[in-house]
Nucleic acid binder design. Structure first.
Length: 152
DNA sequence: GCCAACGTTGGC
DNA sequence: GCCAACGTTGGC
């Protein structure tokens, strides 16, 4: 059992999109970074906790709680020529990119990025590290507890 | 729109 | 294997 923070641009997939999706579940399409892919492929398990983070928007921050609901499987958008996530160098035989399904748990009052930075308990969060651009970052159990019990 | 930081590409 | 150039991320 692990914990993760996963970034999504709310214009594309917000916590409300997730809540209203069939089975309250969305495939986490579009990860095109090897480190983030490897987290999904090698470490994620069904039931892992997910902090759903809105990025590249007027109010960046944690917008909800979700969970990993599948193990990794090939991201179909890599094979779709019309998709912005198409990858000509990938193939059906040896897919380069994978994804997991994510299921909605609950929406919370937004915890803004600035609020996360105010807490000493969270000062080592990967997502807060200078220059971090990873769209998926590990969250420690202590960080998860603090956020879900004290801030959410 | 700006810009710092990072990842990827490709020439050598 | 090095590294410059380029593209992307993401907060502000």
């Amino acid at each position: 059992m692990r914990y993760w923070l996963m970034k999504s641009e709310p214009d594309e997939a917000s916590i409300d999109h997730l809540a209203n999706a069939p089975h309250r579940t969305l495939p986490w399409t579009g990860v095109r970074n090897y480190q983030a892919r490897n987290f999904m492929r090698d470490l994620m398990q069904v039931g892992d906790g997910v902090l759903f983070y809105h990025s590249s928007c007027p109010e960046p921050g944690i917008a909800g709680i979700a969970a990993v609901s599948s193990t990794a499987y090939p991201d179909p958008t890599q094979f779709d020529r019309k998709s912005p996530y198409f990858d000509a160098k990938s193939s059906q035989e040896t897919p380069r990119w994978v994804l997991v399904d994510v299921v909605f748990k609950k929406k919370i009052p937004l915890i803004p990025l600035a609020a996360l930075r105010e807490h000493d308990e969270l000062k080592d969060m990967r997502v807060l590290a200078k220059g971090n651009r990873l769209s998926i970052t590990p969250v420690t159990e202590a960080e998860w507890r603090f956020i879900t019990k004290r801030l959410a």
